Simulated scan of single mutants.
Amino acid sequence: MFQNVKAFTVDEAKKKLEYYCAYQERCHQEVRQKLKSMNMIPEASDVIIVHLLEHNFLNEERFAKTFVRGKFNIKKWGKHRLTRELKRKDISKYNVNQALMEIENDEYIEVFNYLAEKKALLLKEEDIYKKKKKLIDYLLYRGWESYLVYDKVNELIK
């Protein structure tokens, strides 16, 4: 009838969450979710989160910057997608803006051009309008600004 659930003391949970945060940058939302999955009461969760913040295991600005750098460099996401994903993780507007400032403008445009040109070459569509639509959809889904997308698509596909 009863589930076999391991109960954690506050100290055990602190150690577990210190490791959890040291292994990879985490946002507050992920830490709260982890504490919930460990069946910690809200008061204990608050004590643990304060401990993690005081000892710099948890830092939302650092998380946002790491997230932006990683998703931009690896997944080639544009600023709209990065902003949307950070908002989904309840990151403050200030931290989102600070993180986006990590991306150099020249590098941003360079990555965008590379991605657009690479995808345009891979599209095997004969119909010009369908080809344009596929490229536009691909770039918008990745979070690139629409003015950049439409200008580039019109430049690449004639």
Score class of each variant (00 low, 15 high):
Leu121Asp: 11
Lys158Cys: 10
Leu82Ala: 04
Pro42Arg: 14
Phe72Arg: 07
Leu140Glu: 11
Arg62Asp: 04
Met38Glu: 03
Arg81Glu: 02
Asn59Gln: 06
Asn97Leu: 13
Ile91Gln: 02
Val149Asn: 10
Met1Asp: 06
Cys27Pro: 04
Phe112Leu: 01
Thr66Trp: 07
Gln98Tyr: 04
Gly70Glu: 04
Tyr19Asp: 07
Trp77Ile: 11
Tyr20Trp: 15
Glu104Leu: 13
Ala13His: 05
Glu60Trp: 04
Asn56Val: 05
Phe8Tyr: 15
Ala99Glu: 02
Ser146Glu: 15
Glu110Ala: 13
Ile109Arg: 06
Ser37Pro: 04
Gln98Thr: 04
Glu60Arg: 00
Leu53Ala: 08
Glu61Cys: 09
Glu85Asp: 12
Thr66Lys: 11
Ser146Cys: 02
Val68His: 05
Val5Gln: 03
Arg142Ile: 01
Asn4Met: 04
Lys93Trp: 02
Lys93Leu: 08
Lys131Gly: 06
Leu35Asn: 08
Asp106Ala: 15
Ala116Glu: 05
Gln98Ile: 09
Leu58Thr: 02
Leu148Asn: 06
Pro42Cys: 00
Asn39Val: 06
Lys119Asp: 10
Ala116Met: 08
Asn4Phe: 12
Val47Gln: 15
Gln29Ser: 13
Leu100Lys: 04
Asn73Arg: 12
Leu52Phe: 02
Asn154Met: 05
Ala22Lys: 12
Lys93Asp: 11
Arg142Lys: 03
Ser92Arg: 02
Glu12Thr: 11
Met1Cys: 08
Lys87Asn: 13
Lys16Ala: 13
Lys15Ser: 14
Lys6Phe: 14
Val153Asp: 05
Lys158Leu: 14
Lys152Ser: 13
Tyr108Asp: 01
Lys65Pro: 12
Glu18Ala: 13
Cys21Ser: 09
Gln24Leu: 03
Lys124Val: 00
Tyr147Pro: 08
Lys79Arg: 08
Val111Lys: 09
Tyr150Trp: 05
Leu53Ile: 14
Met38Ile: 00
Lys79Ile: 07
Met1Ala: 12
Leu58Ala: 03
Arg32Glu: 15
Phe8Val: 04
Leu156Gln: 11
Phe57Arg: 00
Lys15Met: 05
Leu115Gly: 01
Ala120Arg: 09
Asp90Gly: 03
Tyr147Val: 05
Glu104Ser: 12
Glu126Pro: 09
His28Asp: 14
Tyr147Cys: 01
Lys15Pro: 10
Leu100Asp: 01
Ile109Asp: 01
Lys119Tyr: 11
Glu125Val: 11
Ile74Glu: 14
Asn39Phe: 09
Lys131Gln: 04
Ile41Val: 06
Asp11Leu: 07
Ile48Phe: 03
Ile74Arg: 15
Glu54Met: 11
Asp106Ser: 14
Thr83Trp: 00
Glu126Gln: 14
Ile157Met: 08
Tyr138Glu: 06
Leu58Lys: 00
